[in-house]
Design a protein around this nucleic acid. Structure first.
Lengths: 280, 280
DNA sequence: TTGCTCCTCACGTCACGTGAGGTGGC
DNA sequence: TTGCTCCTCACGTCACGTGAGGTGGC
């Protein structure tokens, strides 16, 4: 017979751990002295303890370990292992991504000697239907875009617009991006489903689901754009991803009075794709 | 101003999460209605929320996130990231090992169509000094080893042996392993330090620290050996490691009476080495 | 007497998830 | 009236670690 301390040492676990296993009924001492409460284990209980330790080392829970020890068919065991393998693969991927993120930030510090922008997050933006107005644009410069958007804005407040669709989110801006020549800017309102008919000049557009780098900025558009695009693009590239222009701008908070311009808030989304890793 | 629900949706977190952040003082609502208790957030608080989410995605704790947000020098930030990187590398390695373990077990099931031995654990066996007796052996067959050990055993019970050294663990057996010709078997007692002088026929031997596959078996030696070596060797190879013979046998529990032979317990340790991964 | 081992509570961990039970405006 | 959103407790999670306070044998 072994004392709890000897048994713990042989099994390379703590005494507290053995008490815990008794508490949950996973491994009971062979004897307990009714007077002193001292526990005693037999040496061949080490087999069960070692089994438990081995299964824990695979990352299985004590509940799973108990199931395994209390008799399980080969197929059930296989199922459990396959499940655990899938979990592990997922965790490995997640950690590898975290490591990439940490390393990207460290690289940023070394290169730029400054704090990396840390208010950029990755978001899966779901597919959404948008009721939108298109405006042609000779050039994609910020004041011109703002002017184009301002021309569209009043349409959304017209009574017949309100009747036709209830928005499910704030207004947003997105582009058809062309490197040369004329572009198109859209001002749109996310809607739950395609309206049966649309008054002029509205059109229904479906924006695909994307993964995007997202940040929130507040103030006048001129103080935000186009710097925010540079910030996002740099961040995306530092992660080792490829930006998929154009970006989308969500008017999280609009202001009526120009005096409150600093209260104005934009969420800027830059979609990106993860390059296929040729090493895999 | 945004309600907690709107704010949560924009930040892709749960309402409960925002309440939690308030509780720990990480992100307080801009206003709380004193009558209803309703929380209100300003849109530009999304910046802070996004920062928190981004840092969480790197696997940082909320405490670390708070430190980062509440002002930190570039060097402190770098230190935190380097620390986190080390953690991540460690976790990656651990998970990769777990995955190897799970896959080894799955392979075992496919190949053998049976439950893998699951009472084998990896243990780091520390360096230890042993007071030992050597016995030459013509062949390394189980009954011959047992006989050789039995010849040595009484020496440890002699009064002058007891005087000279107090053991700090049970007796153990190890070999000098030779594939052909005469081997040597040792019976030894772990001691805290090298004794000043040793009576005949004892010698002091230092066993190096090893990583070993370990299992516990009980019963008569003949019912355990040499199968236990085969089991250990197969397990080690299934993990993708190389066994480093010879094994060590620890007499965890001896019996005086042959009638109690089933109570006899051995811990068998097979040292191994992890092959260097050429891919790294 | 001092150390060492053993005992029994019982709180703490980490970041929330999940009811339970109730309120207030459309 | 029914739904929806919001509120405040407060327990549960997972596998123990870590005291606190005390006992028993060398």
């Amino acid at each position: 017979m072994l004392s709890i301390g000897e048994f713990a040492r042989l099994g390379t676990v703590s005494v507290r751990t053995l008490r815990h296993y008794e508490e949950i009924g996973l491994l009971l001492p062979a004897q307990v002295n009714p007077d002193t409460g001292y526990r005693a284990y037999t040496a061949d209980q080490l087999g069960r303890l070692n089994r438990i330790v081995a299964l824990k080392e695979l990352g299985l829970s004590l509940t799973q370990a108990r199931q395994l020890l209390d008799g399980i068919t080969l197929d059930e065991l296989r199922g459990m292992l396959i499940l655990r393998r899938a979990q592990l693969e997922h965790e490995l991927e997640e950690h590898a991504n975290q490591l990439l993120g940490v390393e990207a930030r460290l690289r940023y510090i070394e290169r730029e000697g400054a704090m990396p922008a840390d208010d950029i997050v990755v978001k899966k933006v779901p597919e959404m239907g948008v009721v939108a107005i298109a405006e042609p644009m000779p050039e994609a410069r910020t004041p011109i875009v703002v002017a184009a958007v301002n021309r569209c804005r009043p349409h959304f407040d017209r009574p017949e617009a309100r009747e036709h669709f209830q928005g499910i989110g704030p207004l947003m801006v997105f582009y058809e991006h062309k490197l040369a020549g004329e572009s198109t800017v859209y001002l749109g309102l996310p809607v739950a489903r395609q309206p049966a008919e649309l008054p002029e000049p509205f059109a229904y557009v479906v924006l695909p689901e994307v993964e995007a780098a997202v940040t929130v900025r507040s103030g006048a558009a001129a103080s935000i754009y186009p710097d925010v695009y540079h910030d996002l693009a740099r961040w995306v590239q530092a992660q080792g991803y490829e930006p998929d222009w154009p970006a989308r701008d969500v008017w999280v908070h609009e202001v009526d009075d120009i005096a409150d311009i600093s209260q104005q808030v934009f969420e800027v989304q830059l979609p990106f794709s993860r390059p296929v890793n040729p090493a895999e």
